[in-house]
């Protein structure tokens, strides 16, 4: 599966168009982007003569942290955009909740940035360039539908990533952190689902014979996320 992510020929937008190859080396101007450029040079060192591999998440526990960092970058960028100009008709309660979620997601992003920088400064991925062209930020249905997709994606991603962390070293610490974040993502996911249709907070579990939520592999998650991320992400070195 991970090979799909790294092979240009197989990167196909869900709607059939190829992701733009032009801007994959451009990164949004998040704080620390300068440091990020140095880091990407190091992280992608062995891939320098192969542009098609994009940003390499790396391997081991740091690779999983980079994977989480990439997803949190996506969520944070989305909610920053949502909160900068709310969709028309947003209620005060919706604004309060979306602002809270923005704060949480930006905080998650900055946490991973700090944690990875502390653990493996040469391996942190840079800021990613997002593509929200398919979202109508003035439209409640579009915004909440995307929010639901992102939150559910985050929950399934963390649920699936836990088992990929190592059982020694910092692995247990990172597993706990993933657990501490995923339950907040699940709280978000439930809220957003309820804003769309009250009572749908756990619809996947409601219909699952064991009452369980879902887990996805990094390849499955990135395959879904890629239509919102211009920067190509190479997950081929992640643990499996």
């Amino acid at each position: 599966m991970s090979k799909m992510i790294s092979s240009k020929d197989e990167i196909v937008h869900p709607h059939g168009s190829n992701i733009s190859q032009v801007s994959r080396r451009k990164f949004l101007g998040y704080a620390g982007a300068v440091a990020g450029f140095a880091a990407v040079a190091a992280a992608c060192n062995k891939d320098d003569d192969d542009d098609n591999d994009g940003v390499n998440l790396g391997s081991g526990d740091v690779g999983i942290l980079n994977y989480a960092y990439a997803l949190e970058q996506l969520e944070a960028a989305f909610y920053e955009r949502v909160v900068s100009s709310f969709y028309s008709g947003a209620s005060d309660l919706e604004k309060e909740y979306l602002t809270d979620i923005r704060n949480h997601e930006v905080g998650h992003r900055e946490f991973f940035k700090a944690a990875i920088t502390a653990a493996a400064p040469s391996q942190i991925i840079p800021a990613l360039e997002v593509d929200f062209s398919s979202i109508n930020f003035n439209d409640r249905t579009s915004v909440l539908g995307t929010a639901k997709a992102f939150e559910d994606l985050g929950v399934t991603a963390y649920n699936g990533a836990g088992q990929l962390l190592s059982t020694s070293g910092n692995g247990p610490t990172y597993l706990l952190l993933a657990g501490q974040i995923v339950s907040v993502e699940a709280r978000h996911a439930a809220l957003i689902a309820d804003l769309i249709s009250n009572g749908t907070f756990a619809s996947y579990a409601n219909s699952d014979p064991n009452g369980l939520d879902q887990a996805r592999t990094p390849a499955q998650v990135l395959d879904i996320a890629k239509s919102f991320i211009k920067t190509k992400i190479n997950a081929s070195n992640l643990p499996s």
Partner: peptide
């Protein structure tokens, strides 16, 4: 308890998949 079942990947993932459902319940 996650770290205490860490080395059994199937159990860990099942536990995580219950854990997030409890969080969804709490949210609602």
């Amino acid at each position: 308890q996650a770290a205490n079942v860490k080395s059994n990947r199937v159990v860990l993932t099942a536990a995580l998949n219950i854990h997030s459902v409890e969080a969804r319940h709490a949210s609602h």
